[in-house]
Design a protein around this nucleic acid. Structure first.
Length: 470
RNA sequence: CGCGGGGUAGAGCAGCCUGGUAGCUCGUUUGGCUCAUAACCAAAAGGUCGCUAGUUCAAAUCUAGCCCCCGCAACCA
């Protein structure tokens, strides 16, 4: 089977942060799992490079926008590589092919787009429209710029969400378009009901850096139009038949951008007469000590620092097991260190060491029977309950440690019970190899090392501990 | 009364739908073991299950009211 998985494309006005890592890791785990099941999997990644903020930032830095976005896009590529996340397709929204395809998409859905006047409060400092609520909260004055908001009107294009509202609501509530977790689905369903038509363009004067609206050089596409399209333009749409891979098996997004993916995106797809993605998985935020990470509080955890501390798999371990797949969870250095030492080093690393030693010391021949994937594990993975699946897998790791203590192979060896010893160690080795399969989507490098110890000829303990204690 | 989620051992959570000895992981203490990265295994301590009332032989679980926390309400992963 051919499957397609997408990640959200980050806006490149800053460095990669820990939230981006969540997206990549989750998508990667699912992709590796599907591959293990024998599917042909395509994984998209990319960068969102249009919009006025980027334009401004480049100007501030005194470099060309092209150069600025290229630099930042490369940073993300590097970051993804550091996470050992594999993608098959990388898209940059400033890629001319993408821009052309976007315009073609616009043409194809133009029956559902109309032009209208938009009037609202505008801050010339922020260069954006401000919601009525925000205006009243700030008493009509922008706190960042100490300037009064101005009433401004402009002509924009609108996407008629109302044409598809019923259809989208139906698809989401029936599960045809599955939104995970359930509580987000409820939120979205409520949100769609009240969703007005969406503005999908800006006058070029406000948004100089973007994709031009076909047949209207004065208007530029709203970044979400351009960004959402990436999921199919990267496959070659509309030049190429994408039906092998579209609809996507799963689209991974942060909870903050779920609404665009669950409202605007389905509307665009329906207007194009394309099927809706099968699943949108919305993950939570990583909190630092219970608080949202923010530059002003100064509690931002640098993902690269975490990666470098104990390596990629330790990073993946913490973020895939101790950060819940769906809800917000905490990162603290203390928890990370504990997880590394007590779980990775003691439970798993030590298990590999002791079992390999037992086998090699006693010169026991191991026959691998090639067990299939655990049903319970598959069940959890199919529901995108990755942290629970990982928990389950870890329970199996601990079971093997327990079993070793119960069977006491060292006693069997001492008493010369070779037959029993052989049987016990074979059972244990087979269990570990089968658990290792479950580990492989989560900890690919570690899993490879374990496989090389137990599945490639003579078994000798790894020369270097898998996870050296610190 | 905007919508939604939640309040269970020091921490993080499960159990609630389908009432019946309050459970898991980490941490703490004690014991066991020696194959192993002083790792592993076992046991113990620790909870008025937010508060109040109701239904019931029996409520963490069902009902009602109240208190508190959090998420969402258009561009912040």
């Amino acid at each position: 089977m051919k499957k397609y998985i997408t990640t959200a494309i980050p806006y490149v006005n800053g460095d990669p942060h820990i939230g981006h890592a969540m997206d990549y890791c989750l998508a990667d785990v699912y992709a590796r799992y599907l591959k293990m099941k024998g599917n042909e999997v395509r994984v998209q990644a990319g960068t969102d490079e249009h919009g006025s903020k980027i334009y401004q930032k480049a100007e501030e830095l005194g470099i060309s926008v092209d150069e600025y976005v290229k630099q930042n896009s490369d940073k993300f590529k590097e970051f993804i590589a550091k996470l050992n996340v594999k993608y098959t397709d990388f898209i940059r929204t400033t890629d001319p092919e993408h821009e052309r395809r976007c315009q073609e998409i616009w043409r194809r859905i133009s029956d559902h787009i109309y032009k209208a006047e938009y009037e609202g409060w505008y801050c010339t400092g922020c260069e954006r429209f401000i919601t009525d609520k925000e205006v009243s909260e700030n008493n009509g004055i922008c706190p960042d710029h100490q300037k009064a908001y101005e009433k401004l009107s402009e002509e924009n294009y609108y996407l008629r969400i109302s044409d598809y509202k019923e259809r989208i609501i139906e698809a989401i509530s029936s599960g045809e378009l599955l939104i995970l977790p359930e509580f987000r689905k409820k939120e979205i369903l409520k949100l769609i009901e009240d969703s007005p038509d969406v503005s999908v363009s800006r006058p070029r004067s406000h948004l100089p850096w973007g994709v031009e609206v076909p047949n209207d050089p004065e208007q530029v596409m709203y970044v979400w139009m351009d960004a959402l399209s990436n999921y199919i333009t990267v496959l070659g749409y509309p030049d190429v038949d994408i039906s092998d891979y579209w609809p996507a098996e799963a689209q991974f997004v942060g909870k903050d951008i779920l609404r665009f993916h669950a409202i605007i995106w389905p509307a665009i797809l329906l207007a194009l007469n394309l099927p809706l993605p099968k699943t949108i998985v919305s993950h939570g935020f990583v909190l630092a000590d219970g608080q949202k990470m923010s530059k002003s509080i100064g509690n931002v955890v640098n993902p690269v620092e975490v990666l470098e501390k104990h390596g990629t798999d330790a990073f993946r371990y913490y973020f895939l097991r101790h950060i819940d797949t769906f809800s917000d969870s905490d990162f603290t250095w203390d928890k990370f260190e504990k997880a590394y030492n007590n779980e990775l080093a003691n439970d798993l690393g030590n298990l590999v060491q002791r079992l390999a030693t037992l086998i090699s010391k006693n010169d026991v021949e191991i026959k691998l029977v090639g067990l299939g994937l655990d049903d319970e594990f598959s069940k959890l993975m199919n529901k995108f309950e990755f942290s629970k699946a990982f928990d389950y897998t870890w329970g199996k790791v601990q079971d093997i440690n327990k079993k070793i203590d119960e069977e006491k192979p060292w006693v069997l060896a001492k008493n010369g019970e070779t037959e029993k010893l052989e049987k016990v160690l074979n059972e244990l080795a087979n269990s570990l190899v089968s658990v290792n399969k479950m580990l492989s989507p989560f900890l690919p490098a570690t899993s490879k090392k374990i496989a090389s110890v137990f599945e490639e000829g003579e078994i000798t303990p790894p020369r270097e501990p898998l996870f050296p204690k610190q």
